[in-house]
Design a protein around this nucleic acid. Structure first.
Lengths: 239, 239
DNA sequence: TAGTGGTCTAGACCACAGC
DNA sequence: CTGTGGTCTAGACCACTAC
């Protein structure tokens, strides 16, 4: 048997497409039992590893659920899970062909309050690094970035020139792998934020609060405020 | 050799963890060449299929890039891609232990304007289904859902009782697989939205606009407006 | 006991890139 | 040519579930 035909679709992909198509057509209702690996092996005349790969990938994509000793089931698609890509703002602006420009309003060491210390995993009364940077897109303020950083995670943070690189980019270099929790909400800016962004205090803002952890150590806590009229987050559902 | 030890970590997972740890420690800088499959086979004493699976999964997670004939490289992690899960609102409210209640303000057939017809893939001058539903969480308005639906995708849409189920849930049953684009922004509500949500016209709102396609056919276009003070989207970064 | 998924192997053929 | 990843196979052992 040809194991890797030249211009043909890979067998595992054929199996996957067949199942995906059936799911799209509603052939298996959510929660319903789907064909077993053995049945697919017989149906497609391929080896078990091949159908296993197809099923494993469908599971990773959230389209099926698999239970050892039981079977494969069509997934409940109630949760509409999607991928939201948040690029580094400087890169995003430059990709649009605009000019990025950052104003550094604050870059210093501060004593951490109790809540902040807890959030960054510091001892009470410890110190944190604090930056306040406003990012401009072709001269227009687009984001006010108020960020606290765990000194243990980025000891040289205060020495970085954030008109040349962004805090996000720098922290990605220092601590390459992330886990983070986000929240996204709409609210009014603080008086300071309104002034820095050049907007009215009644202007709706898109606020992203992000807490980042790397290798178990809290790295940074950031509040990113964008004028609602100038910034939109875009995403797309996973296929 | 034991091929599937009882309580041990699976070999492919050990390989994966080893590489993940190295990436987290900055052992390979972004873009740098990582060990080849053959080297990992020799290092771990496992078969090639095993290391291949580990590398394929790392690729799927966006941690490495692979080029046939060239090698495996540490990924550029500039784009911070995260997973945002948007659950069905009724389910979300009930999961919190609150009571969901929907008011249907509009459920009818309408002529589609040019822009709307184009967005839903209809002929100019076609008709669309239009619903306006306000979702309440324990009596408090939480979301104003203004939705247009392609009649071809859900012919019975106008007959559904949306106090019993949600449009989202119903459409998921009719058209199980989705692709969608959406945008998230902060803005003021329209006069009608402010009235329906019981908020002032100056109150910031989190607005999600979502366009959904199933099997190549546009299904629905929805504008979901939430009072900023009552609703927050939460997400987490993929590890 | 029979059926399910979870995983591993040893070897194979292929396509592609670089020299 | 060599080395890389992309893929498939045929069979195997295991763990789990259900009967």
């Amino acid at each position: 048997m040809d194991t890797a035909s030249p211009r043909a679709v890979a067998p595992y992909a054929r199996v996957k497409e067949h199942l995906k198509g059936g799911l799209a057509a509603g052939r298996w209702r959510p929660g319903e039992l789907m064909p077993s690996e053995a049945e697919l092996v017989a149906h497609f005349g391929v080896s078990r590893m091949t159908v296993n790969r197809a099923l494993r990938e469908l599971q990773a994509e959230g389209l099926v659920e698999r239970l050892q000793g039981v079977g494969t089931f069509a997934a409940q698609l109630n949760r509409v899970s999607s991928t939201l890509t948040i690029r580094d703002l400087q890169e995003e602006i430059e990709a649009r062909g605009h000019r990025h420009h950052a104003e550094v309003h604050l870059q210093r060491r501060e004593p951490a309050g109790a809540a902040l210390a807890a959030s960054l995993g510091l001892a009470a009364g410890g110190t944190v690094f604090h930056t306040l940077v406003v990012h401009h897109d072709g001269g227009v303020p687009l984001q006010c970035e108020d960020r606290y950083v765990n000194p243990a995670a980025a000891p040289d943070y205060l020495g970085v020139d954030f008109t040349a690189t962004t805090p996000t980019r720098y922290l990605l270099e220092v601590a390459p792998l992330w886990e983070a929790q986000y929240s996204i909400e709409a609210s009014r800016p603080t008086a300071q934020e309104a002034k820095l962004l050049g907007i009215g205090r009644d202007e709706p803002c898109l606020v992203v609060v992000r807490r980042t952890v790397s290798r178990g150590t809290p790295i940074t806590l950031a509040r990113l405020v964008h004028p609602g009229s100038r910034y939109t987050l875009a995403g797309s559902f996973r296929p």
